[in-house]
């Protein structure tokens, strides 16, 4: 009898592909949220595999805050073109203007929370009934409790008390008009799983994931890249450091880590050694309040 044994990455991949196909099978107008970050890059790879030799049967959508790393945007356009899927980009800038939204102020004025408005408008514009996202349950405790098929009301709001029980591998994507479902196919992956998968699959990444020299300022032990989007104060000291990004979000709310890692192997070795969590090390926006993510999700966030 042959050895019917699968590696954990194969098991995670099989589960995620099953979820991708459920989305394609259950919804009329799904979309995949693609930012050029490693988690959504993994989603694109899974979607490609799920529908081979066909194309990905849904568009890629990017909600562009205007505060992105140029390297991530270049990567986004190139990879989207390679997949043959349609790329839809909607800008937070436009939403701010059209809706008269108030720009956030402060040293690291982040448009992170404003993304929800643009996302909801985009969902409405294209009539998306499902949005596939790269959130993982190990990231944060609000995410640890969210379903793989997470139903949002017409305001995009997550209500943790009204979640549907999710049993076996049976996903209930039934919704009323106006509601939509956020689907998280890599819910059960942890940070290292993503890195090991990227290594195994030989997936190309934006260059900012690897070591490079960058001008940064130090803010509460975080290294923040010098950019036109942050406010420089008199006591800020600009340093040149060898850094890489452990996560890729906005330039205003993502911190760099000091590193000389120039390959995926180096990165995996560093993550294995580090004693700080992914979000703790890199996300400035999660530290505002202990329930920051929970609050944003209730307001329509990814």
């Amino acid at each position: 009898m042959p050895q019917y044994k699968l590696d954990y990455l194969d098991l995670l991949e099989a589960e995620s592909i099953h979820i991708m196909r459920e989305v394609a099978g259950q919804f009329d107008r799904p979309a995949l949220l693609f930012s050029g970050g490693k988690d959504s890059i993994t989603l694109v790879q899974l979607a490609l595999k799920a529908f081979k030799p066909g194309k990905i049967p849904f568009p890629l959508v990017h909600i562009d805050t205007g505060h992105n790393f140029p390297e991530a945007l270049e990567y986004r356009d190139r990879v989207a073109a390679q997949t043959g899927a349609k790329l839809i980009v909607r800008k937070v800038e436009d939403t701010i203007r059209a809706r008269g939204l108030k720009e956030p102020i402060g040293k690291f004025a982040s448009r992170n929370a404003l993304q929800s408005y643009t996302l909801l408008d985009t969902i409405e514009e294209f009539g998306f009934d499902a949005c596939i996202g790269g959130a993982r349950r190990d990231e944060e405790k609000a995410r640890a409790k969210e379903r793989i098929f997470s139903v949002r009301d017409e305001f995009g709001q997550w209500d943790p008390k009204k979640q549907r029980p999710e049993l076996w591998n049976l996903y209930n994507g039934m919704i009323a008009k106006g509601e939509n479902v956020r689907v998280f196919p890599i819910s059960n992956w942890v940070e290292l799983d993503v890195w090991n998968y990227i290594k195994r699959e030989g997936i190309e990444l934006p260059s900012i994931y690897f070591t490079h020299e960058r001008e940064v300022i130090v803010h509460q032990e975080h290294l923040v890249a010098l950019s036109p989007f942050i406010r420089l104060d008199e006591d800020d000291v600009i340093l040149k450091k060898n850094v890489r990004y452990r996560t890729v979000g906005d330039m205003t709310c993502t911190a760099a880590v000091e590193s000389t890692a120039s390959s995926i192997d180096d990165i995996i070795a560093e993550i294995n050694k580090t004693n700080i969590s992914e979000r703790g090390e890199t996300r400035i926006d999660d530290q505002v309040s202990e329930a920051a993510m929970e609050d944003r999700k209730k307001n329509g966030y990814f």
Partner: peptide, 12 residues
């Protein structure tokens, strides 16, 4: 004072 069903934790 309620518990919202299942939370998932990971380790290896």
């Amino acid at each position: 004072g309620i518990t919202i069903d299942v939370a998932y934790k990971y380790f290896s």
